[in-house]
Simulated scan of single mutants.
Amino acid sequence: MSTNAASAASTTREWQLAARPVGWPKNEDFQLVERELPDLGPGEVRVRNTYISVDPYMRGRMNDVKSYTPPFQLNKAMEGGAVGTVVDSRSDDLAVGDTVLHFGGWRTLAQGPASDFHKVSKVPGVPESVFLHVLGMTGLTAYVGLLDIAEFREGDTVFVSGAAGAVGSIVGQIARLKGAKRVIGSAGSKEKVDLLTGKYGFDAAFNYKDGNVSKQLAQAAPEGIDVYFDNVGGEHLEAALNAFNEGGRAALCGMISMYNATEPESAPRNLFLAVGKRLTLRGYIVGDHYHRFDAFAAEVGEWLAKGDLLYDETVVEGIDQARDAFLDMLRGANVGKMLVRVG
């Protein structure tokens, strides 16, 4: 057990949900407040966050509806992935100076039972921010979704929507490393399309803003697709249904096109194709698959160390900018993982 109370400040700055958004969140739906933390209890630690993650799923937690994860509470600190350093400890399991991964994001200081914090070992030459994407839940989401949920097979043609994002870019690279026949991605700008076919090794990519998604996918995959990894939903899911070969499989990871909608999406209008094509469309939540973490970390960690798997980060500086970083991420302003360096 170790303590460092003299150097561990007790004032945290944290973002709270001030009002539940209707449609696109507004600035006034959030508030940044200061709060004094209580003294540590037995078995507790205090952590100074280094990086926090802002992610699409957080938009759903702003709605007061029943879901797979509880909604954010009004006027309480929001939650999310974070990595930081233990600055005070009353636990035998974690010492001052340990690097930990946890879900007390959206704040400068996090505090609680040591069991809420997972100690990680830094990777030489790699920033600790990777534990919030490639070597964290983002990477596991991609790995499990492609290999377990969509049951990827060598020789498959794979389509990834939102492919320049944190999850999509990893999905495409894993498919390539595992022997895909063809990997196709969609993105929202020419720059992101070039990134997919250049840095990330996608065989083809298109800008969904340039025209009908179904037509663009048909041109990119003239022989059809076998696997669809869905981050977008809506028109993209409709396009995948059109393009699927018989026996195709879809991993339904997210549907960001619907997160801020106030009216139901008009697409997909062709779900009937799932019957004749004998398709499997399977949604999943990464939290149900933590048992796969060790296998994922070993394989992806090796690819990362060899330089076979690449990544991008969009890093915004300062806890004050966390709200804007989140809103920019929803608009697609990031390349790769959107992070906030707490500072």
Results as ranks from 00 to 15, higher is better:
186 S>C: 06
25 P>L: 08
104 G>K: 08
1 M>A: 15
43 G>R: 07
256 I>Q: 11
100 V>A: 12
47 V>D: 00
79 E>P: 01
334 N>H: 10
205 A>T: 11
60 G>R: 11
264 P>T: 10
68 Y>E: 01
202 F>T: 08
243 A>S: 15
193 V>W: 07
138 T>H: 04
323 R>M: 14
106 W>G: 04
75 N>K: 10
20 R>Q: 09
51 Y>I: 01
162 G>R: 01
245 N>G: 12
196 L>P: 10
35 R>L: 08
147 L>R: 14
328 D>N: 07
274 A>V: 13
105 G>H: 09
162 G>I: 07
179 G>D: 07
181 K>W: 11
127 P>K: 00
259 Y>K: 13
229 F>M: 08
26 K>E: 12
176 R>V: 13
79 E>A: 14
298 A>Y: 00
166 A>F: 06
31 Q>H: 10
47 V>C: 03
337 K>C: 10
21 P>L: 00
214 S>W: 04
259 Y>R: 09
254 G>S: 12
313 E>L: 00
178 K>L: 05
294 D>C: 07
223 E>I: 15
159 F>R: 02
232 V>C: 04
100 V>S: 08
65 V>C: 02
8 A>H: 04
296 F>E: 04
116 D>G: 08
68 Y>T: 05
139 G>N: 00
176 R>C: 10
273 L>T: 12
150 A>R: 03
192 K>C: 05
266 S>R: 15
337 K>S: 08
321 Q>C: 00
333 A>K: 11
256 I>M: 08
291 H>Y: 11
56 P>T: 09
131 F>T: 01
2 S>Y: 05
285 I>T: 13
54 V>C: 01
272 F>S: 08
73 Q>M: 15
105 G>K: 02
46 R>H: 07
18 A>H: 09
26 K>I: 07
195 L>D: 06
301 G>R: 06
209 K>P: 13
214 S>G: 13
218 A>P: 05
18 A>I: 09
55 D>C: 11
225 I>V: 15
336 G>Y: 00
77 A>P: 15
190 K>L: 14
82 A>R: 02
129 S>A: 14
53 S>E: 09
302 E>Q: 04
98 D>Y: 06
225 I>A: 11
23 G>T: 07
304 L>P: 04
172 G>P: 05
327 L>A: 02
52 I>R: 00
115 S>C: 06
58 M>Y: 11
145 G>H: 01
336 G>I: 02
206 F>N: 08
273 L>W: 14
313 E>S: 02
259 Y>V: 09
196 L>A: 01
172 G>I: 13
149 I>Q: 03
44 E>P: 05
228 Y>V: 02
216 Q>H: 05
281 L>W: 00
108 T>R: 03
264 P>D: 06
5 A>L: 08
190 K>N: 15
309 L>G: 06
89 S>I: 09
34 E>D: 13
80 G>M: 07
277 K>L: 15
